[in-house]
Amino acid sequence: MPRLRIAVIAPANSIHTIRWVNGLSAYADIDLFSLADHPNKSEMIDPSVRLTYLPSRGKLGYLLAARALRRLAKGFAVYNVHYASGYGTLARLAGIKPYVLNFWGTDIFEFPNKSPIHRRLIQGNAKHAAHVVSTSEVMKQEILKICPGLSVSVVPFGVDLSRFDYQSHQITEGRLRLGTCKILSPPYAIDDMIKAVSLLKQLLKDSQLELSLSIYGDGPSRSELADLIHQLELDEIVTLHGWISHDSIPDVLQRMDIFLLSSLQESFGVSAIEAQAAGVPVIATATAGFQEVIQNGRTGRIVAVADPPAMAQAILDLVKDPASYQRYRLAGRESVEVHYDWDKNVKQQYELLERVAQANKV
């Protein structure tokens, strides 16, 4: 039986796109169509994936790209469009059918709220899709709130378990290594995390624990965070390591005892899933996305949003409770294996695309 031909319409510079096309290439023949403004500068895309760039210049960029997509993307059984705002609009302008539309997060939680025009654009793009995909239940509910009546499936953006080595681990006596991997921008409230560590430093002043916080990532808030670290006299404790490649994350996680997340809002929690896959307990804020992937008191701890004292206390409680620490490690990994195994997620996505292709077969 010949392999299905699938065209993926998505930004080539995104690790999300790269993981999807690489995963789907195990099941089907994949062509990736990306705007030229989103070039792939890595060598991570599987050689079997054919990459085509669409012209995108100035205000007429999407119109030019739509014409090119309509001309080039012929003969495919089904189209998989990622990111409902920009690339969803591109697919609708090109008139390609049938397409499965994957929402990513900001395209439903932020874009429709900019104006009534933005809202109608998302509604139209979703309406023209043969099927819609969300990465989480909380995102699905937001999609249905904006676009009622749609058929929406949840396919998590999980992790490749083979890359995350689960090893026996405990907090080494005399050392507490905290860490995070996140974009340094206001929505992720890294400043709250730093303030929590400052409070924790005071709580541990009579102990012999050597405290450290390693922050991996870069972004517009970096200089402000550096100033805050200095103001709180945490220069010897908190380190801004800067951007790291996605391939480096498993190794970095092995150098952490507890993984922290202080976001003000999250639609999904990939970073939390990665930490749990590596057997690193997670303490995260009570955003909808984190609460979906972390079971409070079973696989990790959930604390109030924008509450550094609560995060500091949760860290201290976990340090003092080795039994809970080990329980979170084991239960977290088991949860990821059941719900967020990337191989299973890719198979889910492929089978959905296959069903849509069969249903629309001429």
Rank of each mutant, 00 (worst) to 15 (best):
F109V: 03
G88Y: 02
P148R: 02
G75D: 08
L72M: 13
S151T: 06
V138N: 04
Q123H: 13
P148L: 09
G105T: 02
S85M: 08
V78C: 09
L121A: 15
G105S: 10
A66I: 06
R57W: 08
S56C: 15
T106V: 11
I117T: 15
P98M: 00
T106P: 03
G61N: 13
K114E: 13
R119Y: 08
R92Q: 11
N125I: 01
L60M: 13
A77P: 05
A68S: 06
V81T: 04
L150G: 00
P112E: 00
A66F: 00
G95T: 03
R67I: 12
G95V: 03
K127L: 12
H82D: 07
R71V: 08
L144S: 05
T89I: 14
A65F: 04
G61Q: 14
S85G: 04
E142N: 09
L93R: 06
H131R: 07
A91Q: 11
I117Q: 15
Y99M: 06
Y62Q: 03
Y79H: 04
L64M: 13
P112S: 12
L69W: 02
N80H: 07
P148K: 03
G58F: 09
G86I: 08
K145C: 14
S134I: 08
V100Q: 07
I122T: 09
F109K: 08
I143Q: 02
G88H: 00
P148F: 12
A68L: 14
F103I: 05
L121G: 06
K145T: 11
G95N: 11
G95K: 13
Q141L: 10
Y79V: 07
R92L: 13
